[in-house]
Nucleic acid binder design. Structure first.
Length: 546
RNA sequence: GGACCCGUAGUAUAGUGGAUAGUACGGUGGCUUGCGGAGCCACAAACCCGGGUUCGAGCCCCGGCGGGUCCGCCA
C-alpha cells in the first residue's frame, strides 16, 4: 500500500479513536491549506451539536501516534483538517524512486478484459473519427493492464461490407493516395504497384478484388498504428463470425427470445418499454451487424472468459449497445454489467459533420503528418542542435494529437480545430513532454549514479509537489473505474504546473546544503518518473530531450 | 412523435453533494549575471433559464430553452 492510502486509513483510525464514526476522508479543494479533510455536517444530527463544535472537539481530542505519517489535525470551521508529517513526504518520494517505472503498477489480479477498439472499414483510409476509438481504447487497455488485468485488444475490422457497385474509382483514388505517400515509404508503393498490376491484368473477380482491398488497407492501417504506438492482440474482422450467425438466430428463436415479424426476425424487449426491437435477420434471410455483434460476444466469452468486454465506439451507437447487451444477457452469453460501452462524442468540422462523400473529411494520416512537420519547425526554432530531430518531432507530434483528445471528457462532441490540434503551449502533450525533458536535463547534468534519497522538505512548493505526486494512483484508479483517461491527463497537467513552479523557485544544482540538494534531486527524479508513467498510460512517449 | 447525450469567462475545458468554481488559449502588465522562456508570476473575465430535494446543488430530481445523436431490413 502506498503512502496516500495509508494516510487516509491512518487518519480514519485516529479519528474513530477520537469518537468520530464512519469517517469519510476527503481530498480538499486545491485552494484550501490542508492535505485531507473531514466535513462534519453529517454528524450534527446524531451528536446534537453544530458541525463547528464537533470539528473543534474532535481536533482537540485526537491522539496522533509518534512517527505517524499524520502530522497534525486541526479544526477549521465545520471541517477537520489533516496535515501530513515529514515522514509522509519522505515515504512518498521514496516509494516512487524504489518502484520507478513499475510505480503504481499492480501485480496480476487474474482478471481479463477484451477491448473492442478502432475498427476501421476496409478500403477507406482512417479519418480523425477513428482516432478516438483507437486511442481511448488503447489508453483504457494500458490503464487496466497497469492495474494487473490481462487485456486483449481486438480490432473488429469492418471487412464485411460488400464491394461497392463501382469499386474502380474508389480503388484508383486509394492508389493515388498511396502514391502520394510513396516518397516516404517505398515498400508501400512497391506493394501497391504490384497489386495494381494484377488488377490491370484482368483479375476483376470481386472476391479477389476484395482480398486486395483488405491487404492494402491493412498495410496502411498498420503503418498508422505503428506511428500511434498502438498494438493489437487480435484482428478478428466481422467476416470472421460469418459462420456463427445462423446458429445465433436459431438459438434465439429456440429460446423464445426472438420471433418472426413481417418476415424478418427480431428480439423484443418485453421488460423494457424504452428499448426498441432488435433486428437480427432481414426478410431476405441475411444477417446483420447486430447478429455479428452477438456472435462476437459469444465467441469472446467462450474463448477468453473475460470479466469485462469494453467497446470503444462512438456515442451515436448507444442504443445499439443497450439492445445488444440486453440480448446477450437474455441469451445467457454474458451479464450485461460485464459489457461496457465506452462511448465518445463526434468530431465535426466547422462546416458540419464529416462526410467522405461530400469531401468533408480529415484523414488521420494527414493530421499526423501535419503535426510532425509543425513539431519539426518548432524544434528548429527552439533547439536546432538537437539530435534525432525527426524522431523526436514524431513523438511530439503524436503526443500533441493524442493528448488533445485524451485530455477532455470523452462524451463531449469535438469541433475539429487545426490551431488547437497543433498547439504545443499551455495544456498540451508537448508541455508535459517539455516538463519531463527539463527534469531529465537536470538529472543528466548532475549525473546521478545511485538512487537519490529524499530526507527533508524546505519550501511550500516542494510539499505541494510531493503531496500531488502521492495522489497519482488515485487518479489512475478513478480513470479506470469510469473508463475516462482524461482524469490522468488532468492529474498530469496539475503535476507539471507544480513541478515547473518548484523548478522556478527551488534551485537544485546551485543548492549548497547537501541534504536539501539531494532531496531536491530525489524530487526531480520522482516527478520525472510519475510524468513518464502517466504519459505511458495515455500512450504518449516521454522524451528526454526535445 | 418517442428516447439518449451535452450546455461552466471572448474561446476551449476541469470539477466522484461540501470551504474562495481549477486550468489553458486569447488580452493587459511583469520575470533570464540561475537546472532548457515549449517555462514562471500578477490582473480582468464564467456555472443556459425556472422550480424542487438537501444543513449545503455547477453536480441530484422535475419542467423549459439551445446544440448533438438515435429510433427494424446500413455498419
Amino acid at each position: 500500500m502506498y503512502a496516500f492510502e495509508k494516510l487516509r486509513s491512518e487518519t480514519a483510525n485516529i479519528l474513530s479513536a477520537a469518537g468520530l464514526k464512519d469517517v469519510v476522508v476527503e481530498i480538499p479543494p486545491e485552494n484550501i491549506d490542508a492535505d485531507l479533510a473531514i466535513p462534519c455536517f453529517t454528524y450534527a444530527k446524531s451528536l446534537k451539536k453544530s458541525p463547528v463544535e464537533i470539528a473543534k472537539n474532535v481536533a482537540e481530542s485526537v491522539k496522533i501516534p509518534k512517527n505517524s505519517i499524520v502530522g497534525k489535525i486541526t479544526a477549521m470551521g465545520p471541517y477537520v483538517n489533516v496535515y501530513a508529517s515529514d515522514k509522509y513526504f519522505c515515504d512518498s518520494v521514496d516509494e516512487i524512486i524504489t518502484d520507478a517505472d513499475k510505480y503504481a503498477h499492480k501485480k496480476p489480479v487474474k482478471k481479463t478484459m477484451v477491448v473492442d477498439m478502432s475498427a476501421p472499414n476496409i478500403a477507406k483510409p482512417m479519418s480523425v473519427g477513428h482516432l478516438r476509438s483507437t486511442i481511448i481504447g488503447d489508453s483504457i487497455a494500458r490503464i487496466y493492464s497497469s492495474l494487473g488485468w490481462n487485456v486483449i485488444r481486438d480490432n473488429h475490422l469492418g471487412d464485411k461490407k460488400k464491394v461497392e457497385k463501382n469499386p474502380i474509382p474508389e480503388l484508383l483514388s486509394l492508389y493515388v493516395k498511396f502514391h502520394e505517400k510513396s516518397d516516404k515509404d517505398s515498400e508501400l508503393d512497391e506493394k501497391a504497384r504490384e497489386e495494381f498490376k494484377k488488377l490491370e491484368n484482368g483479375d476483376k473477380e470481386n472476391t479477389k478484388l476484395w482480398k486486395w482491398f483488405i491487404d492494402v488497407s491493412l498495410i496502411e492501417f498498420k503503418k498508422t498504428y505503428s506511428e500511434l504506438d498502438v498494438d493489437f492482440d487480435l484482428w478478428l474482422g466481422e467476416s470472421f463470425y460469418n459462420d456463427m450467425n445462423r446458429a445465433i438466430v436459431d438459438e434465439a428463436l429456440k429460446k423464445g427470445i426472438a420471433k418472426k415479424d413481417d418476415g424478418a426476425i427480431i428480439i423484443k424487449y418485453e421488460d423494457y418499454k424504452n428499448i426498441p426491437p432488435f433486428l437480427i435477420q432481414k426478410k431476405d434471410g441475411a444477417t446483420l451487424y447486430s447478429t455479428r455483434d452477438l456472435s462476437t460476444i459469444k465467441y469472446r466469452v467462450g474463448e477468453f472468459k473475460p470479466d469485462k468486454i469494453v467497446y470503444a465506439v462512438g456515442g451515436e451507437q448507444a442504443q445499439h449497445f443497450i439492445q445488444l447487451f440486453n440480448a446477450a444477457e437474455m441469451l445467457g452469453y454474458a451479464k450485461k454489467e460485464a459489457l461496457i460501452h465506452v462511448g465518445f462524442g463526434l468530431i465535426s468540422l466547422p462546416e458540419g459533420k464529416m462526410s467522405t462523400r461530400k469531401g468533408r473529411v480529415i484523414y488521420l494520416q494527414d493530421l499526423l503528418n501535419k503535426s510532425y512537420k509543425h513539431a519539426e519547425k518548432i524544434i528548429n526554432e527552439k533547439n536546432p542542435e538537437l539530435k534525432n530531430k525527426k524522431k523526436v518531432a514524431k513523438k511530439i507530434g503524436v503526443g500533441a494529437v493524442k493528448f488533445n483528445d485524451l485530455s477532455q471528457n470523452r462524451v463531449k462532441n469535438i469541433m475539429f480545430n487545426w490551431d488547437k490540434m497543433l498547439s504545443f503551449e499551455g495544456d498540451t502533450g508537448p508541455y508535459l513532454q517539455y516538463t519531463h525533458a527539463r527534469a531529465c536535463s537536470i538529472l543528466r547534468k548532475i549525473g546521478i549514479t545511485k538512487s537519490p534519497k529524499f530526507v527533508v522538505t524546505q519550501m511550500a512548493e516542494e510539499k505541494d509537489l510531493i503531496l500531488h505526486l502521492s495522489k497519482y494512483l488515485n487518479s489512475v484508479e478513478l480513470a479506470a473505474s469510469l473508463y475516462e483517461p482524461h482524469h490522468i491527463a488532468t492529474y498530469l497537467l496539475a503535476l507539471a504546473h507544480k513541478f515547473n513552479l518548484f523548478y522556478q523557485k527551488c534551485p537544485v544544482m546551485s543548492e549548497t546544503d547537501e541534504k536539501i540538494k539531494n532531496s531536491r534531486i530525489a524530487l526531480v527524479f520522482a516527478s520525472k518518473q510519475v510524468i513518464a508513467n502517466g504519459l505511458y498510460l495515455l500512450g504518449i512517449d516521454a522524451v528526454e530531450e526535445m
